[in-house]
Design a protein around this nucleic acid. Structure first.
Ligand SMILES: [Mn+2]
Ligand SMILES: [Mn+2]
Ligand SMILES: [Zn+2]
Ligand SMILES: [Zn+2]
Lengths: 122, 122
DNA sequence: TAACAAATAGGAATCATTCCTGTTTATAAT
DNA sequence: ATTATAAACAGGAATGATTCCTATTTGTTA
């Protein structure tokens, strides 16, 4: 079995990596259409899932909508419940994963800290 | 304006408070039907949202499905990505909210730490 | 007991995401 | 370069959790 690099996947990865705005699949889809007019929603979702599984991007669960993050360095998030904006922040120490793994009997894959509240725009 | 206590809301709150299993709306709905056969899904969702807004229960965003937590004391969660189980754990200090609020310019409402991985059942 | 706003039941609508299928395309072997 | 083939795609249908709608019921106050 071999791995194929489609133009679509390359474009989707570039789009996610090119912003700090933690975009939704729909935002990414619309951005992609401007460059590749015939790209389909299904392709965007399939590739986002694949890139996430592959560890090339991160997923943020924002209620009913998923958001994607091109920054795969450990960091935390502020989530505004009024405008749904997501901001980066660093609260937890970088090595918390290993510390926690020593404490508990659970195969830790990812630790995510989300701070919900109201941002300065309101 | 006055507040009404329907039997439905009382039952739903009791059900959420009676378990440590972090149930979904559907699980709660089915449990409720056994006692109040004609209760509707809409009623379950409406009351869960209301109870959450009111601070009587907590909501956990688990991808596409919401889960509900009768324990409103600050605590953290282990989430198994294989069986979707949610376990309670205490990692963050109780007073982190205030510490963080002092550090950042953001009106902090809630801080949630979720540790994803694989639980002992696998 | 009467008046009325709050809440409900039941079902339709929404909407993000996944699934399906016939077609296209990137890669490896010839 | 040509060919074989599995990977990936486009387009659209299906899914499923949640919300919305409305006629009816019910809890509370006076
Ligand atoms: Mn981020
Ligand atoms: Mn809990
Ligand atoms: Zn905001
Ligand atoms: Zn598990």
């Amino acid at each position: 079995m071999y791995k194929r690099y489609s133009k679509q996947r390359t474009l989707i990865l570039e789009i996610v990596k090119s912003t700090h705005s933690h975009p939704s699949a729909d935002w990414i889809y619309n951005k992609a259409r401007k460059i590749m007019t015939k790209i389909s929603r299904g392709t965007v979702y399939r590739n986002l899932n694949q890139l996430a599984e592959n560890g090339e991007i991160n997923v943020i669960k924002d209620g009913d909508v998923m958001k994607y993050d091109g920054n795969i360095l450990r960091h935390d998030h502020l989530l505004c419940t009024k405008c749904d904006s997501v901001y980066d922040i660093n609260i937890l120490p970088k090595d918390l994963d290993k510390k926690v793994q020593r404490l508990i009997n659970f195969d830790v894959k990812q630790i995510s800290l989300t701070i919900e509240g109201i941002c300065q725009n309101h």
